[in-house]
Simulated scan of single mutants.
Amino acid sequence: MAVSGLLDRGVPPFPRYLLYIKGGILFLSVIVLILAAYSTSVQGDVPAEYSSGVPGYLIFLTLFTWITYGTSTAIETIAPHLYYRVVVLVVYALSVILWLTGWAWSASWASYTLSFNENYRVDNKGGSWSTFGSVMGACAGLGALTWAFTLFVFGLFCQTCLKSPGVSSVGNIELGGMQKHHQHHQHHQHHQHQQQTVYPAQQSYTTQSVYGIHPQRA
């Protein structure tokens, strides 16, 4: 069954360019982390009641991304026999959902803060709503690009796994083939043995027929 390819074990034959796409995801997440950390310092200059949880969420998301794609790539290279596809499927799907939430949330706050007028500006430490909104807009753009890459990786992962059986499936197929070959070999040997065996009555009758000797009737 094709779906078993997603639930099996073993690294499918991914195209080489997938590694570069994963590297792009990690690179973009580093930039998002820097911007999120900077927006946290900017957000400290605005009233607490208007603070946003987006920077903290983006920091968490970048760490999750490093663990997800870094660990999966390391296992592919170092220990492919420990590559459980169902686990990778779940974390890749979560990555797609989390990045979609991240860039949409960032875009929402960018639109919200940039719509304020100059009366909301805070210049105590050089920070302002407009600066925070600009940083959130950059995070939204980079996050949308990262989300597109994660979606592509997820789709390619599913497609490749469905076309390539894992270690367990291949082992079961080979074992079944060996069993069928052994059974066929045993049946062939048994059939040859039956053909070569001559029963005593048939042997006696054959011998008598050759030499023209016929049993006398009583």
Rank of each mutant, 00 (worst) to 15 (best):
I34Y: 01
A36P: 10
Y69I: 13
L33F: 13
K22V: 11
Y211H: 13
S111D: 07
I59A: 12
V170H: 03
L82N: 14
T77P: 01
L156W: 03
G23E: 03
A107R: 05
T62R: 08
H184P: 02
V3S: 12
L145P: 01
S204K: 04
A79I: 14
E118H: 02
Y120H: 04
T71W: 15
L100Q: 13
H214P: 02
P12Y: 00
W147D: 11
V153A: 09
V3D: 10
S115P: 03
A37E: 01
T131P: 12
G24I: 02
V170Q: 09
G133P: 06
L142H: 00
H181G: 03
R16A: 06
T71V: 15
I75Y: 09
A107I: 05
H184I: 03
T150N: 13
A2C: 11
T77A: 14
A144R: 08
G137E: 13
R16M: 02
A148P: 00
A93M: 10
A36H: 14
K163C: 00
S4V: 11
A138N: 00
A36L: 13
F60L: 05
M178I: 09
T40W: 07
R217Y: 10
G56S: 13
S130W: 03
S52M: 07
L156I: 11
H188R: 08
P12F: 00
A107D: 15
E174V: 14
N119T: 09
K163H: 00
A138T: 00
G155P: 05
S29D: 06
S95E: 12
F64Q: 12
G126K: 05
P165W: 04
I67N: 15
P15G: 12
A93Q: 12
A110P: 01
T73C: 09
V54P: 02
L26T: 08
Y17V: 08
K163T: 00
L114Q: 05
F60H: 06
G70M: 13
T150L: 09
L58Y: 01
S169M: 14
L89W: 11
F64T: 09
H187M: 12
C161N: 08
V122H: 14
A79G: 06
G133M: 03
I97D: 10
A218C: 04
S204L: 09
E118R: 00
I25E: 01
A93Y: 13
P215N: 09
Q196V: 11
N119P: 08
T207E: 08
R217T: 07
Q202C: 11
R9F: 00
W109L: 11
L19I: 11
G126V: 07
T62I: 04
C139G: 04
I25K: 02
L61N: 10
W99P: 06
L58P: 01
S169R: 11
G126D: 11
G166I: 15
A138G: 01
T71S: 15
Q202G: 08
H185I: 03
V135M: 05
F157L: 07
G133C: 04
S164Q: 02
F27T: 02
E76W: 08
I67W: 15
G70R: 13
F132K: 12
V122F: 15
Q216P: 08
N117T: 05
A140H: 01
H188A: 14
